[in-house]
């Protein structure tokens, strides 16, 4: 009996590892290609296409990125600061709202839930949002222009969290604490929050990725304040120029000159590498802590 289950467990482990190795390879191979092409001589890249074994190596792309214009270190710093603040603030307001929505006794819960979900479906559009943030809240060219619009909290995260509170944090435990004399704040902090760690870690990750990957806010809300550029702002402006030129190449006589003056393929690849490299380096550490948090939260009952 016991032997049988071990055998089955073993088979599962082997099969599971094989599947995950295949998936990991599928994810990693294109990224290795990305890395190699960023170190490939540009002419070779244009001539022979992308290759795992380039004819000619070159660090020109990185030289270009590190020497031209804005400071990369500063942009990295901005990205980290923004992501950190965004995660902390975003997580706080998301968790609190979701916790409230999970309270079945709360009057008006249905209406508020609906209002939250409604924002997932309808929005005022870019122009009215811009006018709101720029003319009413004056976030243009400030750090808040990067932090506030869109990314801090979204209905999806709130609903995910709410559903976790409903299903993963048993009411009985909370009620017991309440009856024992803990107030709502204490119940939340001491009991609900620790029990919800897996989802807290997940939502933190989602918010963090959202901030790290975002270039739109910088694109729209920063014009003069180039010192606030995050790494994605820096990298994406060039991509956007390419797109602009392609759209207008039939009307702009200078488009061809412009396209030729835009850094070539290897530089675009190097930019992408610069964008995800810090994540690759830092993620394991974050994950370590997350996993600890998750397992702590998981052991219960």
């Amino acid at each position: 009996m016991k032997r049988k289950s071990v055998g089955e467990e073993g088979r599962f482990q082997i099969l599971g590892n094989i599947i995950m190795i295949l998936l990991s390879l599928a994810a990693v191979i294109p990224l290795i290609l990305l890395l190699i092409s960023s170190f490939t001589d540009d002419s070779a890249l244009v001539r022979n296409g992308y290759s795992f074994f380039p004819q000619q190596w070159s660090a020109y792309a990185y030289q270009y990125i590190f020497t031209s214009g804005n400071s990369l270190t500063r942009a990295y710093l901005m990205s980290f600061v923004l992501t950190a603040i965004g995660v902390v603030v975003g997580l706080a307001i998301t968790t609190l709202l979701a916790y409230g929505l999970s309270k079945k006794f709360l009057p008006g819960r249905g209406v508020i839930t609906f209002l939250v979900v409604f924002t997932m479906l309808f929005n005022g559009g870019l122009v009215p949002t811009y006018m709101n943030y720029v003319n009413v809240f004056h976030v243009k060219d400030t750090f808040f222009g990067l932090l506030l619009p869109g990314l801090l909290m979204n209905a999806f995260n709130v609903m995910m969290m709410k559903s976790y509170f409903v299903s993963g944090v048993p009411d009985e435990i909370l009620e017991a604490a309440y009856i024992d004399g803990a107030n709502e704040y204490q119940t939340f902090l001491k009991i609900a929050f620790p029990l919800a760690k897996p989802i807290v870690a997940t939502i933190a990750l989602f918010i963090g990725i959202g901030y790290w990957n975002d270039w739109m806010n910088g694109y729209v809300y920063l014009s003069k304040a180039t010192h606030l550029y995050t790494i994605q702002n820096l990298l994406n402006r060039m991509m956007q120029n390419i797109q602009f030129l392609q759209q207008n190449s039939s009307t702009i006589s200078g488009a061809n000159t412009g396209l030729a003056s835009i850094p070539a393929v290897s530089v675009r690849m190097a930019m992408a590498v610069c964008g995800i490299l810090p994540i690759v380096v830092i993620y394991p550490f974050i994950q370590n802590n997350f996993v600890k948090g998750i397992t702590l939260g998981g052991v219960k009952g």
Binding site: L126, V127, Y130, M131, V134, N135, K140, Y219, V220, S223, K224, R237, M238, M239, Q240, N241, I242, Q243, F244, L245, N248, I252, G258
Partner: peptide, 29 residues
């Protein structure tokens, strides 16, 4: 004088024109 990436500017210009924050003189492109 303001100069920026043409792609970013052309996006911003529409928003700035609609919200009344646009520059006085600019290329209509």
């Amino acid at each position: 004088l303001t100069i920026d990436s043409i792609g970013a500017l052309s996006q911003q210009m529409n928003l700035d024109l609609a919200s009344g924050n646009a520059p006085d003189l600019f290329n209509g492109l």
